[in-house]
């Protein structure tokens, strides 16, 4: 038995191809990229040694700081909004709609599978102010609010990115957290109801603590996704106005491919990786403390 399940040749045949491809095209380049951080240049003009120059440049680069500030701000607000919206939808699915919720769940989930580029182009038209007035500005006009130039000011652009992200992802997080709620045993809810717990009290005392594991993985998944936001920014605002909505990913892309600075680009990519790591660890730590407290 052990001999057959531990057959070295079979392991090599089954695992070999995946491991080789993955190592050559993912792991080696990741390590290679670390090497780039101490170099200057690009593969076409060649590289020169730069020591810690790129890191010093990064911390002295005012653009880099505003880019980090946007990345972190966007990731935190977006995570709170989308996980919050999902957390709001999930009890709606479980307690109010019950069995008939399937159709609604399916419809609200749908936007997450749409190509972000397509959604972004659609949102540009939805929020258009001129030359034609899009649906959103027309709707605001009903209340006497003047058309907002959504892509003209940093604040409005920030919000339109959030709104688009929320539109795309709330159904996804709703289903994710709904699946977590389904794992709560019916008897537990029933006995809590008999004890007189209902509505908010039920959610606070039973639902929230018991769905904490799913909530935790949602938060980690969300923060890692939003820190790496790329498609929606490129397609919706292209980082503008100015660089007001430029995240690290887009800054890295521009630095590397528009200006051909591979060394600096790799440094920015490394900073992004570190940022993801810090946030993931932070969420892990903070929720673990809560669990032991509760």
């Amino acid at each position: 038995m052990e001999r057959v399940l531990g057959d070295k040749r079979a392991i090599l045949i089954l695992l070999g191809p995946a491991l080789v491809v993955y190592s050559l095209i993912m792991l080696v380049p990741i390590v290679w990229s670390l090497g780039y951080t101490v170099l200057d240049g690009n593969p076409i003009v060649g590289f020169t040694f730069n020591g810690f120059g790129n890191f010093i440049k990064f911390f002295q680069d005012p653009a880099a700081w505003s880019v980090i500030w946007f990345t972190v701000r966007f990731a935190i607000v977006m995570t709170v909004l989308q996980v919050g919206a999902g957390f709001g939808l999930s009890p709606l699915y479980v307690f109010w709609l019950k069995r008939s919720s399937s159709a609604i769940r399916t419809i609200i989930f749908f936007p997450i599978v749409l190509p972000t580029v397509a959604v972004a182009l659609l949102f540009q038209r939805l929020f258009e102010a001129a030359p034609t007035t899009g649906p959103v500005n027309s709707f605001l006009g009903l209340f006497g609010i003047e058309s907002i130039d959504w892509f003209g000011t940093p604040d409005a652009s920030f919000w339109i990115l959030l709104l688009m992200g929320l539109w795309q992802s709330m159904g996804f997080y709703g289903v994710l957290l709904y699946a977590g709620l389904l794992d709560i045993p019916e008897e537990m809810l029933e006995s809590a109801r008999l004890d007189g717990a209902g509505g908010w009290k039920l959610i606070r005392t039973i639902v929230l603590p018991l769905s904490l594991p799913v909530l935790l993985s949602s938060l980690i998944f969300s923060i890692n996704g939003t820190l790496k936001v790329f498609d929606s920014v490129v397609a919706l605002t292209n980082g503008g106005p100015g660089n007001a909505t430029t995240p690290l990913t887009v800054y890295m892309f521009q630095t590397s491919f528009t200006y051909g600075q591979y060394g600096y680009g790799s440094t920015i990519a490394l900073m992004l990786t570190i940022l993801c790591l810090i946030f993931t660890i932070f969420i892990f730590r903070s929720t673990r403390r809560d669990v032991t407290k509760g």
Binding site: Y22, I25, M26, L27, V28, P29, I30, W32, S33, Y36, P43, N224, K228, T249, M252, F253, S256, Y262, G265, S266, I268, A269, L270, L272, T273, C276, L277, T280
Partner: peptide, 15 residues
């Protein structure tokens, strides 16, 4: 590979 952003590997891959 799931955790590390793709941005970390595209520059060496380009080379």
């Amino acid at each position: 590979g799931i955790m590390v952003p793709t941005q970390m590997s595209i520059l060496p891959l380009f080379t």
